[in-house]
Design a binder for these strands. Structure first.
Lengths: 325, 325
DNA sequence: CTGAAAGCGCTTACAG
DNA sequence: CTGAAAGCGCTTACAG
């Protein structure tokens, strides 16, 4: 239709629509085609285009926990660095569950231009074996599989241990996340190691784990607190702020004054952590920069460039607030 | 490849892969093809299939505020009712901003099987003019454009006014959202109307609005509170819980005791509202059911069925907590 | 029940 | 600089 209107072949229209006119189309025809496109409101059909080109303009972001507010910022970052020529398709699953490689293979049938995978486990990547551009987010220890953008969450974890030691805490409990995501292992291990080095004891019976859910964490804490209290626990570190909200809630119910009798801290620095009462000490993770950088890396890959720095690590740092001060 | 392996034509393979074998393919060939598919790990190419069929299996969800935790639940609901044969593509924008119809037209080039639009304004729908299956979410007053699933947020708003009146509040302030989304108008109007009916005064200078952001709301409240206090305001109603978190935070800074000197309430009943200190009185909105129902309606449409009930409204209700009790 | 063939809307060598 | 033609991977009447 556009070709007919402009009086040229469809090949010429395609060239103009894709901006590949350099020395291939006359000025005259370029403007005829542009006019025809504008008048008809023509938009290149993505399906036909994808089939001919072999790839679509879709970028798929695979993530296990979209309900985490942290994630919204990651998405915003990815979108910004990807620009408007790529469409971002979110492959979401139920909170904490990871998509089966089988599901993702179905998504691959859409011929995505690139793939972004947040917080995967090795088995998933093993099974997946993507051919095209792929960037991992928050996948510590999996650098061998693909270029990745990681968070140096261990740094913040160590800061937290140092902060608690400096505040005089000698016995601390840890509320972990049950998901096997690598970041939670890093958080816990880095904290425990630094805590031990600074003379803080975290006995095995003071480490519990629950799903990432305020209610679940509250219930687990309620069950464990009486014994912890008898054992002299004066601080609880939580794998995520969400867990910490549950602990804060339940601690109030149990009548433990915060931070005088019980200090509480978490990871993620969610938006509400600055607002809760008491406000929550937390390890801040740069969510937007994470998305931004991962999007930029993927874009380089998709445009055929070679990454000058395939492995990137972003800093984390402790934000001290009322719950431990 | 599959056809060659099974010793049949590609047409037969297509029939089997799409499950359209009823009386068209022999049992013998069906199993040959199935085996070949399994052995080769073949997945129907979505692009080729879409081009031939005219539509893809993509469902696009357009939404203005993905950073709202409320939204994660809506998505979970949509995913569940859509099932695995459709892929959900999220068209996200920066918080509070709505995609331009132009952007969406680009998405339409992907030939989506259906479109879900959350919290649109009339102008957007006017400009859009979709041909295919379309369902609106949370679009009060726009029922004329398409089948929609709405929240009866007015009901909860009236309950809130009644609750405040019963608690003895005579002068109340309102912190609104600046986005022109219809739901915020409904919330405010329903509250103001019921408040007036119950003898609560909400003077014009006691109505302010900010973006949906804890910090912005906090700053706006900080600026307005001194005058409000002089005017005898004893309660603040916020268009969203996010606004309310900012008010809670700033009220503490200003030394106003909650709820004794100042009652605070919001809308949305976000997960953290149950956990904040004091916990936040809020109008609960059924996010998951909203997504569930919208997905189900769209699915009916995509499968060619006629909706027996094109307009659906879900209940909202007040949850009273410590911030007003 | 089966397969050859046309066609979906594009892009891209290729010949001119 | 331009256009005819092949081809991307499927699906679907159609003829047998």
């Amino acid at each position: 239709m556009v070709a007919a209107r402009a009086g040229v072949s469809t090949a010429t229209v395609s060239l103009v629509a894709n901006g590949k006119t350099r020395g291939r189309v006359s000025e005259d025809n370029i403007s005829r085609v542009r006019n025809a496109i504008a008048e008809l409101g023509y938009v290149v059909d993505g399906i036909g285009s994808s089939l001919a080109k072999g790839v679509s303009s879709i970028v798929i972001l695979v993530a296990p926990d979209i309900s985490n507010p942290f994630f919204a910022k990651v998405i915003a970052g990815v979108r910004e660095s990807l620009g408007s020529e790529y469409q971002l398709l979110l492959s979401v699953t139920d909170a904490g569950e990871f998509p089966r490689a089988d599901d993702v293979r179905k998504l691959m049938a859409l011929r995505p231009a690139g793939l972004l995978v947040d917080a995967p486990d090795a088995g998933f990547l093993e099974e997946l074996s993507v051919a095209g551009p792929l960037v991992l987010l928050d996948a510590p220890g999996l650098e061998a599989y693909a270029p990745s953008v990681n968070l140096d969450v261990a740094h913040g974890a160590r800061e937290l241990a140092a902060h608690l030691a400096a505040s005089g805490h000698g016995r601390v409990a840890y509320v972990d996340s049950v998901t096997g995501t690598a970041t939670f292992d890093v958080r816990r291990n880095a904290f425990l190691q630094e805590a031990a080095a600074r003379g803080i004891s975290v006995p095995p019976e003071c480490i519990i784990s629950t799903t990432i859910d305020v209610g679940a964490a509250a219930a687990a804490f309620a069950g464990a607190w009486p014994q912890w209290q008898r054992n002299g626990v004066t601080a609880v570190v939580c794998g995520t702020d969400t867990h910490a909200y549950g602990v804060l809630q339940e601690a109030r119910v149990a009548g433990a004054r915060i931070p005088e009798e019980l200090a509480v801290a978490g990871f993620d620095d969610l938006p509400y952590s600055a607002t809760s009462n008491p406000s929550l000490t937390s390890v801040h993770l740069p969510a937007t920069p994470l998305g931004l950088k991962a999007g930029a890396q993927l874009r380089s890959l998709m445009e055929g460039r070679v990454l000058e720095q395939p492995q990137v690590t972003l800093e984390s740092s402790l934000v001290v607030r009322g719950s431990t001060a």
